[in-house]
């Protein structure tokens, strides 16, 4: 059974890119448009990993990471955040909230798959 990755981003094109790349790499990808949506989707499906943007409406990435980590069944789930170079403080905040790692935008397909392989088995 392929591993399921939840891609959370308010940008449709980024979701599309993540989804396309990871599906090609043999993963199953679910998409969510913001933190709230992500929590709903996490409740339903057996997600093995989360890749989330940080700046999103309704519930941002940091809050999402905190909420996910609070749930016992996601205590150890790998969570990767998508950041930009100008967001170092936010990156630290994300780590404190329980993020596993990060990918700096812009990234390409290889970098994305490398990071996923690094944290998800």
């Amino acid at each position: 059974m392929p591993k399921v990755i939840l891609s959370v981003d308010d940008s449709r094109s980024i979701r599309q890119m993540v989804s396309f790349t990871l599906t090609q790499a043999g993963y199953q990808v679910l998409e969510a448009v913001d933190g709230k949506d992500a929590l709903t989707k996490l409740a339903g499906a057996g997600v093995d990993m989360v890749i989330t943007d940080l700046n999103m409406p309704n519930m941002n990435g940091i809050e999402l990471i905190r909420e996910v980590r609070k749930q016992t069944k996601f205590k150890f789930i790998p969570i990767i955040m998508l950041t930009t170079e100008s967001q170092d403080a936010t990156k630290q905040e994300g780590k404190a909230a329980g993020a596993t790692g990060w990918i700096v935008k812009p990234f390409n397909a290889t970098q994305l798959v490398d990071v996923v392989k690094k944290v998800l088995r």
Binding site: T40, K41, G44, G46, D48, T72, K73, F74, I77
Partner: peptide
């Protein structure tokens, strides 16, 4: 293993 257990727990539930 714990992680996988959780993952499989409700994979029957359809994605909303």
């Amino acid at each position: 293993q714990q992680q996988q257990g959780a993952a499989q727990q409700d994979h029957k539930e359809k994605d909303k």
